[in-house]
């Protein structure tokens, strides 16, 4: 069974065809228009999606051999509603035109299940750290469709903190890869940034971001490389500490990374040092992509679940709800 997956929840217009043998095509158009704004502008994102959706879908179909898919899946939320609506509306029309099932997919579940596309893939149950520019959450993934939220950010997402620090340092956008690169040349112990520890297994990055700001406004701030390295170390410490605590609490010994911040070099190293079996996706599958949506949709369809063509988007959809 081949499934076309479409993802437009933020600033990537993405489409992919996934079949029994894996990913047959994976086309992503990353929007450059947001760079001068220092962050994603929702209206510009939606405009760029509608300009590219046809081209991206056509390319994904052609690269997969041009066959008609057996189903179409699309992100229905969470995300920027104007952006989600583009891919979602196109996907339903594609499914109706082909006369095949449509599956509305939760964007976070797409990320959460994306490690299952890899070899080796984690078996259920496993811990999943989904960490990106819009989300930071830790789940116990018990089985397909049954996910327990163990902790989430109470303020900024980790990726958002990376972007804001990059903006303070005038590094450019998106900030994650730029901070990561500069941090590689800096001393992570130079600045003692805080490691916030809110309740449960939650995360908090707002105070850390404020601490970076205060440091840059101090009389003798460290070099940009040292600031990046120290900030990144603090973020990764917070993420990994929660993973360790979650493993102790649940007894789960497997952890999978997902989301754009999973491309961070330090996090990818540190996750292997926690005494758990760690599954780290290739960098290309960390950021938003159509393959994860096609894959999640395919798994749900194989489990007998599809969506009606009169369904709507769900901008604040919780995983497992």
């Amino acid at each position: 069974m081949r499934v076309l997956g479409i993802e437009t929840s933020c600033d990537e217009t993405a489409a992919s065809v996934v079949g029994p043998a894996g990913v047959l095509s994976d086309v992503v158009h990353s929007q450059a228009v947001h760079a001068e704004f220092g962050g994603v502008v929702p209206e510009l994102a939606a405009r760029a999606h509608v300009e590219k959706i046809g081209v991206v879908v056509r390319a994904a179909l052609e690269r997969a051999g041009g066959q008609r898919p057996d189903a179409v899946a699309a992100t229905a939320g969470p995300g920027l509603i104007g952006a989600v609506l583009v891919g979602f509306s196109a996907a339903k029309a594609l499914a109706a035109g082909w006369g095949v099932p449509f599956i509305a997919v939760n964007h976070l579940e797409g990320h959460l299940l994306s490690p299952l596309l890899d070899d080796p893939a984690p078996c259920f149950p496993f811990l999943s750290l989904v960490v990106s520019g819009g989300h930071t959450a830790l789940y116990a993934a018990h089985e397909l469709g049954r996910y327990e939220l163990l902790g989430e950010t109470v303020d900024d997402a980790a990726g958002e903190a990376f972007d804001k620090v990059a903006r303070m340092l005038d590094l450019g956008y998106p900030g994650g890869p730029l901070v990561d690169r500069l941090a590689a040349t800096g001393n992570p112990d130079e600045v003692a940034f805080p490691r916030p520890r809110p309740g449960r297994l939650d995360f908090s990055f707002s105070g850390l971001k404020t601490a970076v700001r205060a440091h840059l406004l101090s009389a003798q701030p460290a070099s940009d490389a040292d600031v990046c390295a120290s900030f990144q170390a603090a973020v990764v410490d917070c993420l990994c500490r929660r993973v360790s605590e979650a493993a102790a609490l649940t007894g789960l010994r497997r952890v999978a990374l997902a989301g754009g911040v999973a491309a961070n070099g330090l996090l990818r190293q540190r996750i292997h040092t926690l005494g758990l079996e760690a599954f780290v996706p290739p960098r290309s599958r960390c950021t938003d992509n159509g393959a994860m949506i096609a894959h999640a949709g395919r798994l749900h369809l194989l489990a007998g679940r599809s969506s009606d063509l009169d369904c709507g988007v769900r901008p604040a959809w919780q995983v497992g709800a």
């Binding site: 405009r47 509608v50 046809g54 104007g82 609506l85 196109a90 035109g97 082909w98």
Partner: peptide
């Protein structure tokens, strides 16, 4: 954009 996206999808299919 909802109408345009639906039109694009239906026409491609």
């Amino acid at each position: 954009r909802v109408g345009l996206s639906a039109a694009i999808g239906l026409a491609i299919a």
